[in-house]
Structures are given as C-alpha cells and as structure tokens.
Design a protein around this nucleic acid. Structure first.
Lengths: 226, 226
DNA sequence: GGGGGCCGTAAAGAACGCGTCAACGGTGCG
DNA sequence: CGCACCGTTGACGCGTTCTTTACGGCCCCC
C-alpha cells in the first residue's frame, strides 16, 4: 500500500490523521515542522503528502516549493485559512488540492484516493525485488538477473499470493481457493507440482528453496531477503 | 492554450465561467446536459472538464464514469451539495477535484491550473515510435517506414490500449471491454484474429512478433524498443 | 527400527490457448 | 447493382500448459 507523509505541528491532528490512515491500510510517516517534512520526504519518498499550512518555522508554501524542486508527489494542503488568496498561493506553488479545516475525514480520504489514483497512473508499479529475481506485479513481468522469465497463469497466481504476504504463511487451502477456485480444497498435489515449477524458474537453487519455503502440513511462505 | 469543457444546465453559470475562462486565454466548449457533454468530449477531446453535478437527465456521476471509461482528462466537479457522501461518490467515480458553490473564481482558476499542470506533466506523448512503425494517437495515423498504413477501428482500439501501457500486460478481458464493450468477456477468438491482423500490418515479421507480444492465458503486451 | 504422512520430482496423456486460414454476411460507396 | 472492406465465425494444427499418476526421500512419531 501507499506511504503518506503527514506534516502538522499539532500532535492531536497528527495522531488523528495517522489513526485514520493506518486503519485504511496506508503506511504513515510523521513530521511536525517543514524542515522535518523535507528531510523525511528526501530520505523516504512518500506516495503522497498531507501538509498543514500553519507551521512554525518555514511556511507551508516554502515546503511545497521545496518538494516541487525534485518530486511530483501529490500534495494535499490542510489549512484553517479560508482566504482565497491563500488557496491560490498554495495551489499555484504546486499543491494538488486544498482542504480547509474543519474537514470531514471521509472527504479527505476520498480526495487522497483521487490524488493517489492520478499519481499511480504512470507511477512505478509495485515491484518485489529479491537478490535473485524481481516480480513486477502490475506489469506481470518476472526477471532473474537480466533475462526475462515467463510465468504461466497458475505460477503467477501462486507467486502473487505468496509475495503479497511476505514472511507470512499462506495456507494450502488459501492458495487453492485463490488460484484454482473455491471448489478446490484438497488438491495439494497441484501445489506440489506448480510450486516446483515456480522454484525451477525463480529460485537460485530450485532443490534448496530460499524464497519459497515449504511449511510441511500447512502451506508455503515467501521469505524476503534479510 | 488549453480547451475547457464546461458542463452546466444553468445558462448564467455557463456564461460566467465561459467569460472568465476566455478572459484567461482558454478555449471553451459548452454543454448543458450530460449527454451533450459526453458527445462533445468524444468529438473534440478537451484538456479539462468543469462539471456541474446537478444536471437534468443522466447524473453527474454517470458523466464522470462515462468519461473515465476512455479518457484521463482532469475533471473538476462543481456542486451546491456540501454533503460529504456526494463528494466521496464523485471523487471515487474518478473526479479530480470537488468545489462547492458558491465558489471564488480565483480559487476555481487556481484549482484548474493545478489540475492542468498535472495533466500536462505526465501527459503521454501522443506519438509512439518504434524501430519499425509509428503511431500518432492524436491524429490516428500509422506509418511503417515512409508509407502510411490504414488501421481499422478495431485495430486502432487494440493498438491504442496496448501502446498506452508500454511494457505492461493488458488482460484479454480489458482489451475486450475497452474495444468491444463491457458485455464481451470471453470472445478471445476476436482478439486472436484482430491481433493477427494488427501484426500483419505493423510487425516486421508478423509470424514472429516483436512489439505485440502474447502472454498465453493472460493477455498481450506492447514491448517498446530497448 | 518401522511406518505413515508429506513433500519433491519426473513423465505421461489430456486439455487448453493460440495463430492461421477460409468463408460468410453486412455496409458503404461508386 | 456490384465491389471493396470489415467484422464475425468455425475449423484445423501445433505448441504449451495443466492434470494425473507413480515413485522415492525425508522427517517425525510411535
């Protein structure tokens, strides 16, 4: 899921936004000042910035300009100021949207989805990288080293299910349901065969699995690097 | 300068928006109903849509969905409704921004600039070039070497869908929906025939595809050079 | 030490998906 | 009216993928 950088000097608002965002599955970074925000964004580029205008220190518009110097990450401005001139200044500085407090959380989340949707249009796909192979889930491409590997639909289904829950056990029944359909429950032989094929294509040593681990009697697990 | 499609049933508001937009150098198209808006957008694609929600006939959300079926043009919704659920519905349907009436003209213009800026920033080049052929998506012209190639409407639809997502897998169902319509789901034989025709016209060696790649069981992929 | 699960591997045939071709019917235009 | 073009449809061959079965190894528990 996406990462959202929340910039606000009031701890209560930061907390409220954080809670709401995390509850919806976003990863959240926090910053209390403009300087912090710029540093955080540089070190760990977020997918979206929620920016309060009334910051101590450097102004919100400066933060917008500081971000726009090197990134096109969507910026949604939050502010108590209703003055049109403030809105115009922030939007023309490069903000994508401007929401006045108090705001409804549902509306803010909808605006956030809208901003992310746009950014996601030609943004990079969710890519899973390991030391040996790489899976581009959006484009459905798999590469090991420099060469492209073809996965069959079933192999994609298995890889996707496992990779989407890194480090976690995925039950055999879950895999069968998601890949073959709900009427498949006990065909674990399918899993054995196709997991073997997947390993043959993606593992450095197929007979000694390092990424797609068997949990006997239970299921399989994708183990990312370190 | 950019073209803005203004959709509102009240002549006075249409006029007011038109005047303000023209004064700022935009070209303006007008529509009084949702049907008109969809037709106008199709015949003469605008760079931005200003859409009033309170339309007679088909609803504003329907207009948004109708547009989003084939274009990513920025849509700014104007509405008297302050209800959060209305905003959420419009934004999640694909609108880019939501402004409640009465609004300040300066703010609206700033939001419009923000939306256009985004659209321009990641606006894809309407011309796709490969080592062997060239597609001008705007002008609907295809050339191989020096000579012009005629593509049928279906071939254009397929080529456009694929080329608009370079390197990405486009699912069979997606192609069928976008080119033939949502009621087509399993007619993969259509795809086989028409993709073959497309390759015959655009591929250097139609029997050994280099640009329009088949991903068995899943879909097709446009592979750009290098 | 023996036995039963459970797993990985291999190999077979069956089923599927794809590309190709040819024929048919509709439509627009000269 | 006839022609050209386009989309639809069905049939066929081919390669790939999936299913199915069989066998051998490993581990744990009895």
């Amino acid at each position: 899921m996406s990462t959202v950088l929340v910039v606000d000097d009031e701890p209560r608002i930061r907390k409220a936004l954080q809670v709401n965002l995390v509850a919806r599955g976003y990863t959240v970074s926090l910053a209390a000042t403009g300087e912090e925000a710029l540093r955080s964004a540089r070190e760990e580029p977020p997918d979206l910035v929620l920016l309060d205008l009334g910051l101590p220190g450097i102004s919100g518009v400066d933060v917008i300009e500081g971000l726009r110097g090197w990134t096109e990450v969507p910026i949604i401005v939050l502010s108590v100021r209703e003055q049109e001139s403030d809105k115009v200044a922030a939007l023309d500085a490069g903000a994508d949207d401007y929401v006045t407090k108090p705001f409804g959380m549902d509306e803010l989340m909808a605006r956030l989805r809208a901003a992310l949707r746009r950014g996601g249009a030609d943004g990079p796909d969710p890519v899973v990288r390991t030391g040996h192979f790489e899976l581009d889930l959006g484009a459905k491409r798999a590469t090991v080293g420099d060469e492209e590997i073809r996965l069959t639909p079933i192999e994609w289904g298995l890889a996707e299910q496992l990779v989407r829950h890194p480090g976690r056990l995925v039950a055999q029944r879950t895999l069968l349901h998601e890949v073959w359909g709900p009427q498949y429950d006990r065909e674990t032989n399918y899993l054995r065969v196709h997991i073997a094929n997947l390993r043959r294509k993606l593992e450095p040593e197929p007979s000694r699995p390092r990424y797609f681990i068997t949990e006997p009697g239970m299921g399989y697990r994708f183990e990312p690097d370190h």
